[in-house]
Design a protein around this nucleic acid. Structure first.
Lengths: 188, 188
DNA sequence: GTCTATAAAGTGATAGAC
DNA sequence: GTCTATCACTTTATAGAC
């Protein structure tokens, strides 16, 4: 209700809905309605409209997920355990299907990377951020830079794909099976 | 131009566009235009409209990809080599970004699994089909049923995620990195 | 089987008052 | 900062002629 809340509320609702329904599946009306913010304020806070909103949403997911990854990795000295911890936390979100939050950007990325270069770039940067977070940890445990980056790309792919399968199946098992196989992937 | 072509042409254009742009990002007008089929024929051939069209498109991808997978697997006695062969063929599609075809259903699955139970089910079945194709090969090479299914789920996830990363990065490397790590995943 | 015309609703976006 | 009203456009879908 206070003064500076509207922008935050709109961005937060947009972030959630874009993740769940995609860019074209989410209308501005729905965002306004779910945010509870006043209708007139959308184009005041986001003068460039829907695209700007989506880019800022992706940037927010970028930072949010980066934080979750580093939190999990810092808890464990063994990188495999750290990644498994992240995956297990992620998989918990699929028990209560409405409270999903902090899901990576795969849907937006796939939808819009052929249509908006700005959005594609924002998604690309998010993937790079997360890849670097994983790769840094792997290098610390003895992998060379190239190998660390290669493995991190694969881990990113597994996570994005695992999320899609878990959503489609309404079942967190795909993400948990991925977690199980992580140690094998990091064997030297 | 001949009599029975319209239905096929519409379905084929729809399949391609849904994969690239998603369900909500693709309009019926665009499908008609790209198919070259007469405008009046869409609701004659697909009386239940867009949803029916999407479900049939998913079923078509299901069968098309299943064929590609089994072709690759049958070429090689070693399952790891077979999967790598499939991934390499898949990655070739990212060199000419417009000629993409036979891409799995991740985008449609993620977009619509919360909104249409019928579509969700069609995507779910596609994943199951492909998982079974991989799992059968793994069982033949000595894995027990449970382990074979678990690994196949992970492979499915990697492929879906790898496609999304490759699209976003405009680069086939993610899929190729996945191919490189497949043997490690199948070590016993 | 295919056509045109059109309905009915929704979309993103803008203008101008308050 | 927020409001209402409205624009121009697109969307899915239907009706009825041919």
């Amino acid at each position: 209700m206070s003064h500076g809340d509207s922008r935050k509320k709109i961005l937060s609702a947009a972030t959630r809905l874009f993740q769940l329904q995609g860019y074209y599946g989410t209308g501005l009306n729905q965002i306004i309605k779910e945010s509870g913010a006043p209708k007139g304020s959308l184009y005041y806070h986001f003068p460039e409209g829907k695209e700007q909103l989506a880019i800022e949403a992706v940037n927010q997911m970028n930072e949010y997920v980066r934080l979750k990854i580093t939190e999990s990795l810092e808890k464990c000295s063994d990188p495999a355990e750290g990644i498994q911890s992240f995956l297990k936390e992620l998989s918990c979100q699929f028990t209560c299907p409405e409270n999903i939050e902090g899901l990576p950007v795969g849907l937006l990325a796939a939808e819009t990377s052929l249509k908006s270069e700005f959005l594609r770039h924002a998604c690309d940067q998010a993937y790079e951020t997360w890849e670097n977070a994983f790769a840094e940890k792997l290098q610390q445990s003895g992998f060379c830079e190239n190998k660390a980056k290669e493995i991190s790309t694969v881990i990113n792919s597994m996570i994005e794909g695992g999320i899609i399968l878990s959503i489609t199946r309404k079942d967190s098992k795909p993400l948990l099976h991925i977690a199980n196989l992580i140690p094998k992937l990091l064997k030297t």
